[in-house]
């Protein structure tokens, strides 16, 4: 459970940082005021949707962190052997990276009001993300045909479960990205689509980071790191 506690500690520091700016030490009973004293800014200048997505990503982060916590705790038990990673996962990683980069490009071209580049970038991002999902399905098939089925070993079970969960999140993102792309192709102005593209990019980068972490996890690179942490703790 230490992984989730570290995650929550990180989140707590963000919350504390935010709260520190909210005048929590003020004495509201002494501050009955008049209108002109009312600050025009009671909320964040960020768009509400962005804050909403940020909060949602914190929840998604907690979800994956808990899966990873469970992974490490289960890993310590006797019957564990690691799963070989199909090489197609490298290609999938590349596809997801391209998808993320393309969205970033779409974002900047929307800012510059460059509609044609934006459309192309969105399309590339959408296509590569679908490519990622297909690649993941291919990786599953490869593992199954090599005899690494779901219930054989906890490492297999975790692999299918966590990649499946990540895939579902990508799929959900694809729905939104698809909708945005469609709207842009129906000639919505870049200015209008700006926020939607921003949000998609934010989500995409986050899911890319999640994927890199779980990829490292299954490749076993994280193990040494965890081992060091364990020794530090004990």
């Amino acid at each position: 459970m230490s992984v989730i506690l570290i995650f929550l500690a990180g989140l707590a520091s963000i919350i504390i940082w935010w709260m520190a700016q909210q005048r929590l030490t003020s004495k509201p009973w002494l501050e009955a005021g008049r209108a002109s004293e009312i600050s025009a800014i009671t909320r964040s200048p960020l768009p509400t949707a962005k804050i909403g997505l940020g909060v949602f990503l914190a929840v998604v982060g907690a979800l994956f962190t808990l899966f990873i916590s469970a992974y490490f705790m289960r890993m310590g038990l006797q019957d564990w052997w690691a799963i070989p990673l199909p090489s197609v996962l490298w290609a999938n990683t590349a596809a997801l990276v391209i998808s993320s980069v393309a969205l970033e490009k779409a974002k900047s071209s929307a800012l510059q009001n460059d509609a044609s580049t934006m459309k192309l970038a969105l399309l590339i991002s959408f296509a590569t993300a679908i490519g990622f999902l297909l690649g993941q399905a291919f990786a599953w098939r490869e593992l199954v045909s090599a005899g690494y089925v779901l219930a054989d070993n906890p490492a297999n079970s975790f692999f299918y479960m966590i990649t499946g969960m990540h895939g579902l999140h990508i799929l959900g993102g694809l729905l939104v990205l698809g909708r945005t792309t469609l709207r842009v192709w129906q000639n919505e102005t870049p200015g209008h689509a700006q926020l939607s593209i921003d949000l998609c990019a934010m989500y995409w980068h986050f899911m890319l980071i999640v994927w890199l972490i779980i990829f490292a996890l299954f490749a076993g690179w994280a193990n040494d790191f965890v081992e060091i942490c364990r020794q530090l703790l004990s």
């Binding site: 909210q22 005048r23 003020s26 509201p28 009671t42 509400t48």
Partner: peptide, 17 residues
Amino acid sequence: YVVTVLQGRARGMTLMR
């Protein structure tokens, strides 16, 4: 609920009010 508290408050409604 969370984002409404963060972003939906009326003018003058600071957190400590």
